[in-house]
């Protein structure tokens, strides 16, 4: 399967962390990321996203790439878990979430250990993995920092 780990785009500051919306700049920059994904023929069977507003709004921006469905899950607002991996069904799945959980998940899937800091996922970055969604079962195919999408 293909798994796309997507960190939410740049959000506004605020006291209610769960309710911080994307900033205008964040939404605009992530639109460039979506354009790049489209040019790479990326499509999703399933988009799992965290319930926090910035992840909800980032997932919304992906809608033109979605052939299947969206699903909100609290598992993407928590450290990576087997339950999260079990929820990934389909040939092409996007996970829209937060740091440091996403880079820990990336490390877990590629290196076999969920250690944060081995990969850097900027806000709006996308990592494309391929293989079995289990510890050490995936290969990092590419990692798209948002700056690269803007430079296109």
């Amino acid at each position: 399967m293909k798994l796309f780990l997507i960190r939410h785009a740049i959000a506004e500051d605020g006291d209610d962390d769960d309710g911080r919306p994307l900033s205008t700049k964040g939404a605009k920059r992530f639109a460039d990321v979506v354009k790049t994904l489209r040019s790479l023929d990326v499509r999703f069977d399933l988009v799992l996203h965290s319930p926090k507003l910035r992840a909800v709004q980032t997932a919304e921006l992906l809608h033109t790439l979605v052939d299947g469905s969206f699903e909100v899950t609290p598992l993407l607002a928590e450290p990576p878990s087997r339950a999260l991996l079990e929820a990934c069904s389909g040939g092409s799945v996007a996970l829209v979430g937060h740091e440091p959980s996403l880079s820990a998940l990336l490390s877990w899937l590629v290196l076999g250990k969920p250690s944060a800091g081995r990969f850097e996922l900027k806000k709006g970055a996308v990592a494309c993995l391929e293989g079995e969604a289990e510890a050490g079962g995936m290969t990092l195919v590419w990692l798209l920092p948002p700056k690269l999408a803007r430079a296109r």
């Binding site: 209610d16 769960d18 965290s50 319930p51 926090k52 507003l53 699903e71 909100v72 899950t73 609290p74």
Partner: peptide, 15 residues
Amino acid sequence: HPRVDALVMALGRVP
């Protein structure tokens, strides 16, 4: 199912 509470939480913050 945890999806239910996550849904309610997310809906509560829709602008």
